[in-house]
């Protein structure tokens, strides 16, 4: 109560001085952004126009970094290509899988907690060292996957020497860690008012009709969120190629974030790495903008959608 009291007085005084209550709630974020975000962002943008080796002062070189990555560096364009390929393959599968499982896990069944936890476990592992060992156990020549293929009468596959197979391995890892999207879907499903379902059931609607006509539209804000976030994350995927393929074979999984990391901390070309990051930034931003623009058509907000 003391808390809310101080807010009331604050509110009154602020209202006199300023019309906008919203800015008060935004204040922590505004301060934080000014202090913690603006400086590193501007710095990295500045570095992108310099030659910066981390030990001496950055030297301004204009657009040279940007020119280099699109002309003389064969790896950068290639990295964009494979990163996009990975994203396009992983995101839809992962989201569909996550939504489907969230739907199932939303049932009232005995022991459902156990299953929810079990499905989330792979995502808790994250980029843990154990994942690298695990993946070796699964995908080496005589690993579990090949043994299963052979048991079913197939022939073992060389998972890491062929570009397409290596990509496949990374996609599987990406999909396997679907837990975060699933949990977000699950909490969205939980937030749907029960009376909506009851009304539909009274009207005699079938389960699948309910799912597509009621559930899906109601969670479009969450689908939208997960879609944006997964695109952002997958276009910046680092752990998979870093831990498992090391960018290989012959750079077929040399993702953009890996090439940025190599340039920044192995080659000490922070300027160049920053330039690459800003190109990646622009690509993601453009994509996000498109999704945001189209969202008016398919995302339904219960608050009336005034944003």
């Amino acid at each position: 109560m003391v808390l809310s009291f101080s807010f009331i007085t604050l509110e009154a005084s602020i209202l006199k001085a300023r019309k906008n209550m919203g800015l008060l709630y935004l204040l922590p974020w505004l301060i934080g952004t000014a202090v913690f975000t603006v400086y590193p962002f501007i710095s990295s943008l500045f570095y992108s126009f310099t030659n910066y080796d981390l030990i001496s002062k950055p030297k301004f070189i204009g657009f040279a970094n940007y020119v280099e990555m699109f002309t003389t560096d064969p790896d950068f364009i290639n990295s964009l290509k494979v990163t996009v390929e990975y994203t396009v393959l992983t995101v839809p599968i992962q989201l569909a899988f996550a939504l489907f499982l969230a739907f199932i896990l939303n049932f009232k069944l005995k022991g459902i907690n156990f299953f929810r936890t079990a499905y989330y476990v792979p995502s808790i592992l994250g980029g843990n060292v154990a994942v690298a060992i695990l993946w070796k156990f699964l995908f080496t020549k005589e690993g579990l996957i090949n043994q299963m293929i052979e048991a079913l009468g197939g022939k073992g596959v060389g998972w890491l020497s062929s570009p397409s197979n290596a990509m496949f391995v990374l996609v599987i890892l990406g999909v396997w860690q679907f837990g975060s999207s699933m949990v977000i879907f699950l909490s969205a499903l939980q937030q749907i008012p029960l009376d909506l379902y009851e009304a539909a059931q009274v009207d005699g609607a079938k389960k699948w009709t309910i799912f597509f006509k009621i559930t899906i539209p109601l969670i479009t804000p969450t689908i939208f969120f997960n879609l944006v976030m997964q695109l952002v994350n997958k276009l910046q995927e680092f752990n998979g190629p870093y831990l498992i393929t090391n960018g290989g074979p012959t750079k077929s999984t040399y993702f953009t974030s890996l090439i940025i990391y190599d340039n920044a901390f192995k080659n000490f070309r922070m300027g160049y790495a920053s330039a690459m990051s800003w190109v990646l930034f622009t690509i993601i931003a453009a994509l996000a903008l498109i999704i945001f623009k189209t969202s008016d058509r398919w995302v339904y907000y219960s608050d009336g959608g005034n944003n």
Binding site: T33, T37, Y39, P40, F41, S43, S44, Y47, L54, M229, V232, Q236, S257, I260, Y261, A264, F265, M270, A273, S274, S277, W278, L280, F281, I284, A285, A288
Partner: peptide, 12 residues
């Protein structure tokens, strides 16, 4: 702020 790879803001 989600779009910029963290690698390049680490040093600043």
């Amino acid at each position: 702020t989600l779009f910029l790879p963290a690698v390049v803001t680490r040093i600043p």
